[in-house]
């Protein structure tokens, strides 16, 4: 694809994201017409006295986290798919989500409070990835390294899922159990600017190395041996990028709870528009993922008076979308 066409498509994606962002401010229980919102943004005037609070304290953090989470999960997924040379890999493959889920469950059991849950989930997610990496190291050397890594990820993931089930079984069914269950289904409800201030730098810190190495990520998708013969230090680079991609997912998931499917389908979908080159795929995935999660969250908070968990909607929309993406790839 020509560079110009790519820039065009990327601008279009950014524009769509911008429009969805504005639109998202107007959605919710408390109605806020677009003209009121635009007037407030551009002139600072408002008639409704609740408006500043609503926009700045309630909807802004939520919209920001939706953008951050959608973008980060998608970039993480795209990177994972490249690293594992497999377009149906998702960021959960090394157990980061299961680990975070378990961490959150433990913290909820200990009544650790929101910050405690987030920190524990974050740490446990990274521990799960570290475990997967080291388990694959211990196993025999002569096998396909990637296959071993996937298998270790499955083992570690299953273990943490089992532990989470144990926590749920032990949890008080009146209060703790629902809380754990809701966490595992994902939600952006409890997010305030405090979380944004922590998550945003983490996401940025993990994005930068991924973007800088996006060319080499292409080379890695040929497999370690070919990458090495092309002059890339494959083992070390893969490890670095796996860590960055896991950091992306862990930092988001620890705040939002588990949101499946985004990291799997968005890169798939985006690849259809901008091609497989990771230099283009990563930035484009961020924009598409952000827009997608914003829309999903809009749905979650507007469809019924009761908020629908995000993970439920992403799965409901994600499954057919995945099918569609596969069909589109087939046609192309």
């Amino acid at each position: 694809m020509k560079r110009l066409k790519y820039i065009w498509i990327l601008s279009l994606m950014a524009l769509v994201l911008g429009m969805i962002t504005v639109f998202s401010f107007t959605i919710g229980r408390y109605s806020l017409p677009v003209d009121e919102l635009l007037r407030y943004i551009f002139t600072g005037d408002y008639t409704d006295e609740n408006l500043p609070l609503l926009v700045m304290r309630v909807r802004l953090p939520r919209i920001l986290i939706a953008i951050l989470a959608g973008g980060a999960l998608s970039v993480s997924g795209a990177a994972y798919q490249g690293l594992f040379r497999n377009p149906v890999v998702s960021p959960d493959i090394l157990g980061v989500s299961s680990g975070a889920g378990f961490g959150a469950a433990v913290a909820i059991m200990l009544s650790a409070g929101i910050a405690g849950i987030q920190v524990t989930a974050f740490v446990a997610g990274l521990i799960a990835v570290a475990l997967s990496l080291s388990v694959s190291r211990v196993m025999a050397m002569n096998h396909d390294r990637l296959l071993l890594l996937v298998l270790s990820g499955m083992i570690v993931g299953a273990m943490f899922t089992a532990l989470t089930s144990l926590m749920k079984y032990l949890a008080d069914s009146e209060s703790r159990l629902p809380e754990i269950t809701f966490w595992l289904m994902g939600s952006l409800t409890d997010v305030s600017m405090r979380e944004i201030r922590v998550v945003a730098p983490l996401v940025l810190a993990a994005l930068v190395p991924l973007l800088l190495n996006s060319w080499k990520l292409n080379i890695l998708s040929f497999g370690d041996e070919e990458a090495k013969s092309l002059g890339v230090n494959a083992g070390r680079l893969r490890l670095t990028l796996v860590c960055c991609a896991s950091l992306l997912t862990a930092s988001v998931v620890s705040v939002t709870g588990i949101i499946g499917w985004v990291g799997l389908i968005i890169p798939h979908f985006t690849r259809f528009f901008v091609g497989a080159d990771h230099r283009r795929l990563l930035p484009a995935s961020f924009l598409v993922g952000a827009a997608f999660l914003l829309l999903v969250d809009d749905l979650a908070r507007s469809v019924s008076s009761l908020e629908i968990p995000l993970g439920v909607i992403t799965a409901l929309i994600g499954a057919p979308m995945f099918f569609l993406a596969l069909r589109m790839a087939e046609k192309k």
Partner: peptide, 24 residues
């Protein structure tokens, strides 16, 4: 020899294998 320096001198044509992504 570093990987990169070596790859500037020695190139490899492996037996063809499947590629996961549709690169042009």
């Amino acid at each position: 020899w570093g990987r990169r320096d070596y790859a500037r001198v020695v190139a490899y044509v492996p037996q063809a294998r499947a590629l996961a992504f549709p690169f042009p």
